[in-house]
Design a protein around this nucleic acid. Structure first.
Lengths: 243, 243
DNA sequence: CGGGCCCTTGAGTGTCCTCAAGTTATGTGG
DNA sequence: CCACATAACTTGAGGACACTCAAGGGCCCG
């Protein structure tokens, strides 16, 4: 495995992300301390530890989760390419959730101490980091509203819609299908539903032609209809910065 | 009402907040564009609007909430003194939730356009802004875990504990009580529970001597016991930056 | 004194949970 | 090549936690 230059980073090409200036690419080239490839099941960041690294996901998917004292697990978000990992640990000193690889993943690695240099010398990139944190906060706010106010069917519909939109934005759609290599248990833990109920809800959505998630692939025949079921707007995702 | 200088800002004295350097205080003095006092019930920031301002809460309390297309309301967080409001609108262009004053409030007002100047000239303060965003993200993550994995009693206990800790950190405890001027409906909407169920749960906690919230005041006889009920650590809050 | 707003309490219902069993696909070792 | 084990997905049955509906009480204010 060889190192990819930021100059030719595949992320740059994806229309979802705002491109960097020449100067920024040069800085990031330095900022990047290496690459990391991990197998499915690997814990990338651990709850309670103070990770010395920050990552940007280049390829593969994972899960952000948090386990309570009583052992129950909450999935906070699904980790997709372009996601920025470890900022919490960097600014606050400690991760409060874990990140686990679900598929094989390739990560761009940054050194935590260099983040301060970024803030001193690259205000525009610092602003981007804040943008990313605010966007994450915004998404978690939507999740809170979902768990608090939507019933089971609406939750599942909402989650599938969001994932479909995100994956499509990344250009991963092929023949009307996007890859979604998670387990039903993961979705259940993300939505605060039992596995059994999640399974039955998914079956219903499938037979109602609202959304079909099977064999690790998701297809949505009618986005508008699914969005209505999810009590949400089917708005496309905005362009966003990345590192 | 007269303007308070950042030099003598009451926030500076609260042990919960990390103090600013002299240079930072001078910058903030300029950054601050004024003060705002609002009556209970006032909408400070509106969902879907692009507010031109950012605020720091000096006094009073409020609510951050979000309403779904079907009309149901989710309270995202309780707004307390020291909180930083409007960052999402500033970096992302639009608020995705509203903020409403519950008591009379006094706010420190910043101009949105000046945020960029802050990032260019005050990297340490920019870092603080990111810290705040990350902390907010962290808290919302805990909330997601609460709504997803805790039952009714645990949720109420968790919320009361968090609020008690925050208010105590602000030095608002008097004779074993902290002020909590919200309605039961607000707590219900924050926890995804019905008003009726929230009410019954609060009664139970009261008669079990776990937590007593009545007449707008909250007291917690045994923090440790409440924390156990809430399936959480009764850890004190860390020091945090503010603007 | 009437009307709101908030808190309180009781009764009946339903969504979602747990328990349990069975199917399919994949992999491992004899 | 087949017995066995494991992991994920399915499906059915019964129960519980939390919901809605409904009504009443305390308080403040016009």
């Amino acid at each position: 495995m060889h190192r990819i230059s930021c100059q030719t980073c595949p992320m740059q090409k994806c229309a979802l992300f705002t491109p960097h200036s020449e100067e920024q690419k040069e800085f990031l080239e330095d900022f990047k301390s290496g690459e990391l490839s991990v197998e499915p099941g690997t814990q990338i960041l651990l709850e309670g530890s103070s990770a010395p690294q920050i990552y940007t996901v280049l390829e593969g998917m994972g899960l952000r989760d948090k386990t309570l004292e009583n052992g129950r697990r909450q999935v906070l978000n699904f980790v997709l390419p372009g996601d920025f990992l470890g900022l919490q640990a960097s600014v606050m000193g400690e991760m409060m959730h874990s990140i686990e690889a679900v598929t094989e993943m390739r990560l761009c690695v940054f050194r935590r101490e260099d983040l301060w240099t970024l803030f001193r010398t690259q205000p525009a990139l610092a602003y981007d980091v804040t943008w990313i944190a605010a966007a994450e906060e915004h998404f978690l706010g939507e999740t809170v509203a979902t768990l608090g106010q939507r019933d089971g069917t609406e939750r599942v519909a909402w989650a599938l819609l969001k994932l479909y939109q995100r994956l499509r934005g990344l250009g991963l759609e092929k023949a009307g299908q996007v890859p979604l290599p998670f387990r039903q248990q993961d979705l259940a833990d993300a939505l605060g539903l039992s596995l059994v109920h999640t399974n039955k809800t998914l079956s219903r959505l499938r037979s109602d032609d609202m959304a079909d998630w099977s064999d690790g692939k998701l297809s949505v025949p009618d986005i508008q209809a699914l969005a209505e079921l999810a009590v949400t707007d089917p708005e496309a995702l905005p362009r966003r910065p990345f590192l």
